[in-house]
C-alpha cells in the first residue's frame, strides 16, 4: 500500500515514552501538591496587611503562569504540526487546550476571590485580570474551532492557524491592556507585587508551580492517549466502511 494511514494513528514510540513517564508524574503530582498546599496554607507566614487571604496567591499565581505557558506550548506544537506535519504535535495542542483553559479559569476565579478582601469587590478591571480574561477567550475560540470541523486533519490546521495568530497577538494585547489600565487608573488599587518576595513565600510558590506542572503532564498524557485511541477507533470504522 502506497499510503500509510497508520502513521497518523499509531505513534508507537510516543505512546511507549508517555506510558513510562506517566506513573512518575502522577506520583510527583500527588507529592508536590500535598507539600505545596501544606507549605502554602500552613507553614508560610501570613501577610501583615492581608492576613490569611494572601494564601490564595499560592493557588492563583502558579495557575496564571500555567495559563500562559500552556498557550505558548500549544502554539509551539501547532507550529511543529504545520511545518513538519508531525501527527502527535496537532494532537498535543488539542489535548492541552482544555487543561490550559481550566488553569486560566482557576486563575480568574481565585483572582476574583482574592480581590474581594483586597479591593472590596470581586472584579476589578485590573490589567492582569483583564489580560487573563482575554486569554480565556482565546482558549475558548481555540476549542470551539476544533469542534467545528468534521475532518480532524482540517480542524488541526485551522486551529493551528488560529493559535499562531493568537500567540502573535498576546504581547500586543498585553501591552495595550497595560497601557489602557494606566490611562484609566482605578481609584485605589493595592498592588499585588507587595514587598520583595521572601523565601518563605517563594518556596511554596515554586513547589506549587512544580505541582501544577506535573498535574498538567499527567492530565496531558491521559488526554493525548485518549485522542490517539479515538483516532484509531475512527480509522477502524473507516476501514470497516471501505470493505
Amino acid at each position: 500500500m502506497a499510503i500509510d494511514l497508520h502513521r497518523y494513528a499509531n505513534p508507537a514510540r510516543f505512546l511507549r515514552i508517555m506510558g513510562a513517564i506517566f506513573p512518575w508524574v502522577a506520583i510527583s503530582t500527588a507529592v508536590l501538591l500535598i507539600a505545596g498546599l501544606y507549605l502554602g496554607l500552613f507553614v508560610s507566614p501570613e501577610d501583615y496587611q492581608q492576613g490569611d487571604t494572601v494564601r490564595i496567591m499560592f493557588i492563583h499565581v502558579p495557575a496564571a503562569w500555567m495559563a500562559l505557558s500552556i498557550y505558548t506550548m500549544m502554539a509551539i506544537s501547532s507550529a511543529v504540526g504545520l511545518i513538519w506535519k508531525h501527527p502527535v504535535a496537532d494532537l498535543s495542542a488539542k489535548a492541552a487546550a482544555p487543561i490550559g483553559a481550566c488553569f486560566t479559569f482557576l486563575a480568574l476565579v481565585t483572582g476574583a476571590l482574592w480581590g474581594q478582601p483586597m479591593w472590596g469587590t470581586y472584579w476589578v478591571w485590573d490589567a492582569r485580570l483583564t489580560s487573563v480574561l482575554i486569554l480565556f477567550f482565546l482558549y475558548l475560540g481555540y476549542m470551539a474551532i476544533w469542534e467545528s470541523f468534521d475532518d480532524p486533519s482540517k480542524a488541526a490546521k485551522a486551529a493551528a492557524i488560529l493559535v499562531l495568530v493568537g500567540v502573535i497577538n498576546i504581547p500586543i494585547i498585553k501591552f495595550s491592556v497595560d497601557w489602557w489600565n494606566t490611562l484609566h487608573q482605578p481609584a485605589s488599587v493595592a498592588t499585588m507585587d507587595g514587598p520583595k518576595i521572601h523565601s518563605s513565600i517563594l518556596i511554596p510558590l515554586l513547589v506549587m508551580a512544580a505541582a501544577y506542572m506535573s498535574l498538567f503532564m499527567s492530565l496531558f498524557i491521559v488526554r493525548v492517549k485518549s485522542e490517539i485511541l479515538a483516532r484509531r477507533l475512527r480509522l477502524l470504522q473507516m476501514n470497516k466502511l471501505q470493505e
Binding site: 500500500m1 502506497a2 499510503i3 494511514l5 497518523y8 480532524p152 486533519s153 480509522l235 473507516m238 471501505q242
Partner: peptide
C-alpha cells in the same frame, strides 16, 4: 505517477 488520494482519513484511490 502513483497518485493517491486520502479524504477524511479514507483512501479514495491509490497508484
Amino acid at each position: 505517477e502513483n497518485l493517491g488520494c486520502v479524504r477524511q482519513e479514507r483512501i479514495i484511490f491509490s497508484d
